[in-house]
Structures are given as C-alpha cells and as structure tokens.
C-alpha cells in the first residue's frame, strides 16, 4: 500500500468514471475513423484536456518550489491575443502594425515569447523581490486579461489561417495535434526534471529553502526558471485555445483555468506545500477533470449540477489521498462487524 504513488488514487477514480460510462453511457467507448482521424468521446477527453494538461505541467514545477502561479489563465489570453492580432492584423490593435507575413512558425514563436516575458515577470517578482507567489502572480492575473483586451481592442479577433488552426484541429497518426503537443511537452519536462539535477533543486527549494541555500542551490535562479517555464506552457495552451476556435476571445480564453490547473496538480498528488511533485500525476489529474466534463456534457446533465459533481469527485480523491482519512475509514469498517 505504501509503495503506491500518490496519483494512484486519481487514476483509480479516473478508471471508475470510465467504467461508469462503459456501463451507462452507450457509445462512450466507440471510436471510429473519420477523414483519417480518430473520432469518439475518449479522443475528446484527450484532446480537450490538452490546455489544462499543459498548464498543469508548468504549474507542477511552480508548486514544487512551494509557489503557485495564478496568472496562467491570463497569460493564455495574452498569448492568444498576440497570435490572433499578428495573423489578422486589425487596424485598431496596437500590434496591427507588425507584419510577420502570416508565417505560422513566427507567429507561434511570438506568442510563446510574449508568454515567456509574462513568466519572467512573475519569476522576477517572486525570486528577486521576494513577493509571496500568490500576491505576485495575482498582479498579472488581474492585469493580464486587460493587456490581452488592449491588444485585441476589446474584440474577439478572428482569423483564417489553416496552417495555424491546424495546431489545434489537425491530427497526426489519427490523434489530434494537441495530444501530441502535450505528450512532447511532458517528455521534455520529464527528462528535464528527472535526468538532470533541476528536479532535485526544485524539490530542495520547495521543501526547505534555507537548507537548500546552505547546500549551494541558487533558489532565485530555480524559481525564475520554473515561473518562466510555466509561462511558456500557458502560452502553448493559449495558442491551442485560439487555434481551436480560429479566434482570440480575450475575455474568456483561459478564464478560471488556473484553478483547474491547480486542482489537477493537487488531485495528481503533488503537495501544495511544495517539495514533492509528480508530472504524470498532474496529467492524470487533468485527464480526470476532463473525463468528468465530457461525461457530463455527453449525458446532458443539467448545468447546475455539473460543478457539484466535479466538486464531489475532487473531494473524494483528495480524501482518499489523505492517510489520516484512510486510517479513519479503515477503522470504521473494522469496528462495524464487532
């Protein structure tokens, strides 16, 4: 029992949700090929969970250092607005004068660069100015959406550029591109934190910053790096969200997704206090959240109950993770027969 990773509980609940659908939602497991791509509810779960998965990957590292990044939703909006404005170049937008000749790679780089700047801004506030992460990132969470709206001049900027929308709507080997993007990002981050000392440094900073400093870990540079990486992940999520609807909706893109990302990380077994993190757990967490959403949407459950059902599942997972609750539950079941 002790050998099980923390995210095993999330995985178990995810399996339970899927089992529920296997029995009670006809057609949920049906997958077919349409126009060379796989099509079905399970593929939807993978595809739709991509933005939150990406946010959760970045957020995992930040939370690993004992911090939190509340601005990721707003950074998504900024990256999305930058991309959409650079493609459509509306005359009213401050970015309208920049011409990247509708080159998808350049536009993608520009959007990710904007997100990187946002991440660096957070990182500087947290590491060099010693602001509490929740306060430092709150700044950009509030102001960021305004910046995105400023870029887009308050409009939903729509565009037509098939090579850019393919980032979200295209597919490779049957699977939608966002699934591959998440997989690739996950692999890069996994190598980064497990095959180099970077992951160890993050855990050191998160579990005991003083000890880490005495051991020679430069906490500031580690923190700056994780916030910057988190920004880039958010930028990628924003690009996917924008490419998906062929337009940047600065008011709604990524709205409240920072909370979903934190929830995915917590459900995935990463300690919110920092010091121990699990990337795979966060992905499982994001998949669980999306599996719930897709289940609810497919079954046409009334919108009022949606949030309650999500909350119940999250409470269940978090309780199952808590050793104190488990021993209490075991105690109760043991007492009853006596």
């Amino acid at each position: 029992m002790k050998r099980l990773p923390q995210w095993a509980w999330a995985l178990a609940v995810l399996a339970l949700v899927l089992l529920f659908n296997l029995v009670l939602t006809p057609g949920f497991f049906h997958i077919e090929q349409r126009d060379g791509r796989l099509y079905g509810s399970l593929i939807d779960i993978l595809n739709r969970s991509a933005p939150v998965s990406l946010l959760a990957i970045g957020m995992t590292l930040v939370i690993g250092t004992g911090g939190v990044d509340l601005s990721v939703g707003a950074v998504m909006a900024i990256a999305g607005s930058v991309a959409a404005c650079l493609i459509a170049r509306p005359a009213e937008s401050p970015l309208g004068g920049i011409n990247l000749h509708r080159s998808t790679p350049l536009i993608l780089l520009a959007a990710l660069f904007a997100a990187l700047l946002c991440g660096l801004f957070n990182g500087i506030l947290v590491s060099w100015l010693d602001l509490q992460p929740i306060v430092a990132t709150l700044l950009l969470m509030v102001a960021g959406r305004g910046i995105a709206q400023l870029f887009a001049n308050g409009q939903i900027v729509t565009f037509h550029l098939p090579s850019f929308s393919a980032i979200a709507t295209g597919s490779l080997a049957g699977f939608p591109n966002p699934v591959w993007i998440v997989l690739l990002t996950f692999l890069i981050f996994a190598v980064l934190v497990r095959s180099t000392a970077f992951g160890l440094f993050i855990e050191a900073v998160g579990s005991n910053p003083v000890a880490a400093r005495y051991a020679g870990v430069d906490a500031r540079r580690i923190k700056l790096a994780v916030y910057a990486l988190c920004g880039v992940c958010a930028g990628l999520a924003g690009v996917i969200g924008t490419a998906d609807i062929r337009g940047a909706d600065a008011n709604n893109l990524g709205l409240y997704l920072e909370l979903d990302a934190i929830l995915a990380v917590a459900v995935g077994g990463t300690s919110i206090m920092g010091g121990r993190f699990s990337l795979i757990g966060s992905i499982v967490g994001a998949l669980l959240m999306q599996a719930l959403t897709t289940t609810i949407l497919t079954r046409g459950v009334s919108p009022e109950t949606t949030l309650v059902m999500k909350a119940l599942v999250v409470v269940a997972v978090v309780l199952l993770q808590a050793p104190a609750f488990r021993s209490w539950a075991v105690g109760i079941t043991r007492r009853r027969p006596a």
Binding site: F28, S41, D44, R48, D244, I245, N252, T293, L297
Partner: peptide
C-alpha cells in the same frame, strides 16, 4: 465560442 464548440462536440457523440 469555445464552450459552444465543446458542448456541441460532446452532443454529437451522444
């Protein structure tokens, strides 16, 4: 727009 798309996607599969 984004939610409209997500809901319709799920709807079409049900």
């Amino acid at each position: 727009r984004a939610k409209g798309k997500e809901v319709a996607e799920a709807l079409l599969k049900s």
